[in-house]
Amino acid sequence: MKVKQLSVFLENREGRLMEVTKILGKSGVNMSAYFVADTSEFGILRVIVSDPEKAFNVLREAGFTVRLSDVVCLSCPNHPGALSLALEILAREEIFIEYMYAFSSGESANVILRPTDVDRCIDVLQKNQMELVSASELYKF
């Protein structure tokens, strides 16, 4: 149930975000999630795309520093307290989350989790009957 996330290193320079999206668009790669982590010196763009390998290659060719990493996509009902329940389980099991971001669409919300231990995180969530989104489903968005 691992999902591939594409990360792109970005200097704080004008136009870099635009360039990434332009390259992906031209290559016919669709994005279903898009998140920028920024610091005062640099930024990291994290995207979930329809074709991670292709996106990785085209960006690399264009001179970007890119990385593919495994993340987990949790689907939780779009109502109050749902995310909290999932996070409680992870906290109880001592699963450390490096970062996460979420996006909701209609009845449910997708939460991208980047745990230190991806396999154990999947295991724990599944044992607790939490719904995970598979890569193939997610890339279709």
């Binding site: 996330q5 990360s7 290193f9 982590a37 610091t39 010196e41 640099f42 990291i44 994290r46 690399r60 520093t65 890119v66 990385r67 990493s69 490096e98 970062y99 980047r114």
Partner: peptide, 18 residues
């Protein structure tokens, strides 16, 4: 310049490198 193979998706790791 950051070497590609050491690029991390985690802010913390890059800040540690810095």
């Amino acid at each position: 310049e950051v070497q590609e193979q050491f690029f991390s998706d985690e802010v913390k790791k890059l800040q540690d490198l810095r």
